Amino acid sequence: MFVRTESFREFLKFYPIVSTLVGIHLLLWILIDFLQFGFALDLLRFGIGVNVLILEGEYWRLVTPIFLHAGFAHALFNSFSLVLFGPALEQILGKFKFIFMYLFAGIVGNLGTFIVNPDAYYQHLGASGAIFGIFGVYVFMVLFRKHLIDQANSQIVMVIFILGLFMTFTRPNINVLGHLFGLIGGFAIAPTILRNARPFSIWQQRTRTSSQSSGDISFNPNRWKKRRFPWKKYGGYAFWFVIIFLVAVALFGRVL
C-alpha cells in the first residue's frame, strides 16, 4: 500500500493527481527559488498566506499557500510524503474525491491559522496542512473503516502520524495550527468521501491497464533485435534513487 513497486511511467498513469501535485511543487520551487524569475517571485508574494491581507479580502491566500514552499528541503519533504501516502488514497477515493479532500484539508488548515493565530502579520506556506489531511483520512480508516486498511499498514500509518505530530511540536518554523486543522479537515470529511470505497489494490491498476492494451497485442519477429534500455524494469528504481539522493542532500545541507 505504501511501498511503491510501479515503474515511473506506471506511477504517472496510475496516480495522475499525486503526480501533478508533485510536479507543481517542484516546478514552482525551480521558478521561485532556483531560477528566481520575476513573475514567479510575484506569484510567491501574492500567494503566501498573510493573516492581515486575508482579513482585508485577499481570500485566495487561503488556497495558494498549499502549492508554495519555503525552499528546496520544504518542497522536497512534502512532495516525498505525498508520493508515499497519496497514491493509495487516490486509488481508494478516485481522482475527484482525492483532489477535493486535499484542497479541503489544506484550506481548513489555512483557515484555522487565520482564525486562531493572534499574529496579524503571521506568514505561512506549504502543503503540510493538506498532507496532514491525508493522515486524517487514514486515521479515520484505522478507527472506523478497518476493512479498507490491513493491520500492517494501519501500524505504519499510526507510527508515521505520531512521528509527524512529534515533529510538528518540536521543530522550529512549523505552522502548528495548519497541521492540526488540516488533520481535522481530513478526518471530518472522511465519512463522506469514504462511502462505497474499496481497499487499495495495485492489481486493480495493472488489470485495467492489461485489459486496455490486450487488443493491441501482436507478434514482432524483430523485437529481439531492439536493444532498448528496460525502463519499465529499472525506471522505478532510478526514480526512487534520485528522490532519496535529493532528500539526503537536503538533510545534509540543513545539518551544515
Results as ranks from 00 to 15, higher is better:
residue 1 M to A: 08
residue 3 V to L: 15
residue 5 T to H: 14
residue 5 T to K: 15
residue 5 T to P: 04
residue 14 F to C: 00
residue 18 V to M: 07
residue 20 T to L: 15
residue 22 V to G: 09
residue 30 I to H: 00
residue 31 L to H: 03
residue 33 D to M: 03
residue 36 Q to F: 11
residue 37 F to G: 15
residue 40 A to L: 08
residue 40 A to H: 10
residue 53 L to Q: 13
residue 54 I to H: 08
residue 55 L to G: 15
residue 56 E to M: 06
residue 56 E to D: 11
residue 60 W to C: 01
residue 60 W to Y: 07
residue 61 R to V: 00
residue 63 V to Y: 09
residue 65 P to D: 05
residue 67 F to K: 05
residue 68 L to C: 04
residue 71 G to W: 01
residue 74 H to Y: 12
residue 76 L to F: 10
residue 76 L to A: 11
residue 76 L to E: 10
residue 80 F to K: 04
residue 81 S to F: 13
residue 83 V to D: 01
residue 84 L to T: 07
residue 85 F to S: 07
residue 87 P to V: 02
residue 94 G to K: 05
residue 96 F to G: 11
residue 96 F to N: 12
residue 97 K to S: 14
residue 97 K to V: 12
residue 98 F to M: 08
residue 100 F to V: 15
residue 107 I to H: 01
residue 112 G to A: 06
residue 114 F to V: 09
residue 121 Y to V: 12
residue 121 Y to T: 14
residue 123 Q to H: 03
residue 124 H to G: 13
residue 125 L to P: 00
residue 125 L to T: 00
residue 127 A to I: 00
residue 131 I to P: 03
residue 133 G to D: 13
residue 134 I to W: 05
residue 136 G to H: 04
residue 137 V to Q: 03
residue 139 V to P: 13
residue 140 F to N: 02
residue 140 F to W: 12
residue 141 M to D: 11
residue 141 M to T: 11
residue 142 V to C: 15
residue 143 L to K: 01
residue 144 F to Y: 14
residue 145 R to M: 03
residue 145 R to L: 02
residue 146 K to L: 04
residue 147 H to I: 06
residue 148 L to N: 04
residue 148 L to H: 05
residue 150 D to P: 10
residue 150 D to A: 13
residue 150 D to T: 12
residue 152 A to R: 15
residue 153 N to I: 07
residue 161 F to H: 12
residue 161 F to Y: 15
residue 162 I to P: 05
residue 162 I to W: 09
residue 162 I to A: 15
residue 163 L to S: 02
residue 166 F to V: 09
residue 166 F to Y: 07
residue 167 M to P: 00
residue 170 T to R: 06
residue 179 H to K: 14
residue 179 H to V: 15
residue 182 G to M: 00
residue 183 L to S: 12
residue 184 I to G: 15
residue 186 G to T: 04
residue 188 A to R: 02
residue 190 A to D: 09
residue 190 A to R: 03
residue 191 P to S: 10
residue 192 T to A: 08
residue 197 A to R: 03
residue 198 R to A: 08
residue 200 F to E: 09
residue 201 S to F: 07
residue 201 S to L: 05
residue 206 R to H: 09
residue 214 S to M: 10
residue 220 N to E: 09
residue 226 K to N: 06
residue 230 P to W: 11
residue 230 P to G: 06
residue 232 K to R: 15
residue 235 G to C: 13
residue 237 Y to V: 12
residue 237 Y to W: 13
residue 237 Y to I: 13
residue 238 A to H: 05
residue 240 W to N: 15
residue 240 W to A: 14
residue 246 L to K: 04
residue 246 L to F: 14
residue 252 F to I: 01
residue 252 F to S: 03
residue 256 L to T: 08
